[in-house]
């Protein structure tokens, strides 16, 4: 791929990385020292695009919004659920371990899936080998929860989920 083509393809990703770094600088330096922060951000963006082995994947804005809302509400529910179980006198745990075939394509989508599984109610990511995900569950229906999360992650990256078995 020519350098010019790569540059135009990566432009949206470059803007997003630059925006996030600018927010971080604003937070850490309290809005001062942009003469240093600005060039540093530019250098980091260029280096990231040059060195990253992963192709930047565009996020779907509506999918992102829905994913964040889902993540926050489910995090709260998951925290309440596990706190309730920990404090319950009889310690009610429905322990099960399942292997599930992941339907999302390899790459960032899978990373997000495995990263969020452990923060959502009743599920913990244990292992991912090729397409086979091992999940440990203590509550609810882990299979159904993972399938729902997969659909949200597919939305996040604007991937079609028509072929996915739900």
């Amino acid at each position: 791929m020519s350098l010019r083509r790569r540059a135009t393809q990566d432009l949206p990703a470059a803007f997003i990385i630059a925006a996030l770094l600018a927010l971080l600088w604003l937070g850490l330096a309290e809005g001062e020292g942009w003469w240093f922060g600005g060039p540093a951000i530019l250098a980091v963006v260029l280096m990231t695009l040059h060195l990253s082995p992963v192709r930047a994947q565009p996020l779907h804005p509506l999918g992102l919004l829905r994913f964040v809302a889902y993540f926050i509400s489910q995090s709260l529910y998951g925290g309440l659920d596990v706190a309730g179980r920990a404090l319950h006198p009889r310690l009610p745990l429905l322990i099960e371990k399942r292997q599930i075939a992941v339907q999302l394509p390899d790459g960032p989508a899978r990373t997000v899936l495995v990263g969020t599984i452990s923060l959502l109610p009743g599920t913990l990511a244990v292992d991912l080998e090729d397409d086979l995900l091992t999940v440990h569950g203590i509550a609810g229906d882990p299979m159904a929860n993972i399938r729902r999360l997969e659909k949200r992650v597919a939305d996040l990256f604007g991937l079609p989920d028509a072929g996915m078995r739900i």
Binding site: S75, G79, D81, V82, A83, S118, L119, L120, L124
Partner: peptide, 11 residues
């Protein structure tokens, strides 16, 4: 691990 990840995330 279930207890630590989920409860601490919300906390």
């Amino acid at each position: 691990l279930h207890a630590l990840t989920k409860a601490d995330n919300v906390g």
